[in-house]
């Protein structure tokens, strides 16, 4: 191992500019990789939060009393397509209205519970059912109006899907970029020592003797770059946590209902980047040296 450090020191000294540019290029690639994963997760989380809001609000006519609304609430609640249903009475509506408009006393003076409609707030298990449910509720007796946030939700859903697809493509692209950066960086290094490698093989060096220093070098370059990017990603996690917009944490797309603290998520992401750094360094250098091991 000390020989490895000695070789590395010599290489860094000899190829200062190239080493710095390789570190920067790989570091930025890993950082962008981490940021895009974060962007994908944040957009998925935002969608979850949006889906979690009341999606359909059924407003009732004034003459449709609580005695009729509550049995209807029970009926809706029993529907397998519905996740939850909440009754908002006229008084509750007034309280909410007052809360929202507490800074406008003039407006509040003219409002009483009697002019606000009672309502039911319905959350569907699947936002794909919103249209169907809305139509069903519209035809119910005593219903004044049915509102649902179809446009907002579906628009955000398609944006989020686009972010997911673009993010995925970018993540794969960045992996490929990192891979080729490692290969080309090592190929340059190997080419510079081509004669030495040829002589080593002629005098009986084993594959591992020729290959290992380059493998160490590739893994070292890649992991140091990944470590630097990981540090920034952890700080980004702290930033998202302090931002405080996601009270429950970040949603992990493939585990429904699972939320995780942004710092923990980004720390895990940092470890994934480190692992990626190791794997990319390992396989990249293995590929780079392969053709030089032909006897």
């Amino acid at each position: 191992m000390p020989k490895f450090w000695e070789n590395l020191r010599r290489h860094l000294q000899k190829e200062k500019l190239m080493s710095v540019s390789n570190f920067l290029l790989m570091g930025i690639t890993f950082l962008l990789l981490g940021i895009f994963i974060d962007v994908v997760v944040i957009s998925q989380t935002a969608l979850r939060y949006l889906e979690d809001q009341a999606q359909i609000t059924i407003f009732f006519k004034d003459d449709f009393g609580e005695d009729k609304i509550l049995p209807l609430k029970a009926n809706i609640g029993n529907d397998a397509r519905v996740a939850s249903v909440t009754y908002v009475s006229k008084e509750e509506a007034l309280r909410i209205f007052k809360e929202i408009n507490k800074d406008e006393p003039v407006l509040l003076e003219s409002i009483s519970a009697s002019i606000l409609p009672a309502s039911l707030e319905v959350k569907a298990k699947n936002i794909g059912n919103l249209d169907k449910l809305t139509n069903e509720y519209k035809s119910q007796e005593g219903v004044e109006e049915v509102r649902f946030y179809k446009d907002v939700v579906s628009r955000f859903a398609s944006t989020s899907r686009a972010v997911y697809i673009v993010g995925f493509i970018l993540v794969v692209s960045f992996f490929l970029i990192s891979y080729s950066v490692i290969i080309s960086a090592l190929r340059t290094s190997i080419n510079a020592r081509g004669k030495e490698l040829e002589i080593m093989k002629l005098v009986g060096a084993s594959d591992s003797y020729v290959r290992d220093p380059f493998m160490y070098e590739g893994v070292f370059f890649s992991m140091v770059s990944a470590a630097a990017a990981s540090g920034v990603i952890i700080l980004l996690g702290v930033g998202i946590d302090r931002w405080g917009i996601f009270s429950k944490g970040l949603a992990i797309g493939f585990i429904p209902g699972f939320f995780i603290n942004p710092i923990i998520f980004n720390t895990i992401l940092a470890f994934i980047l480190l692992l990626s750094g190791f794997l990319l360094g390992y396989f990249g250098s293995k590929t780079a040296i392969k053709k030089y091991l032909k006897y």
Partner: peptide
Amino acid sequence: HEEVPDLRRKIGV
């Protein structure tokens, strides 16, 4: 392939 280094230690060139 892995036995070539050993051969080259027996045949100097």
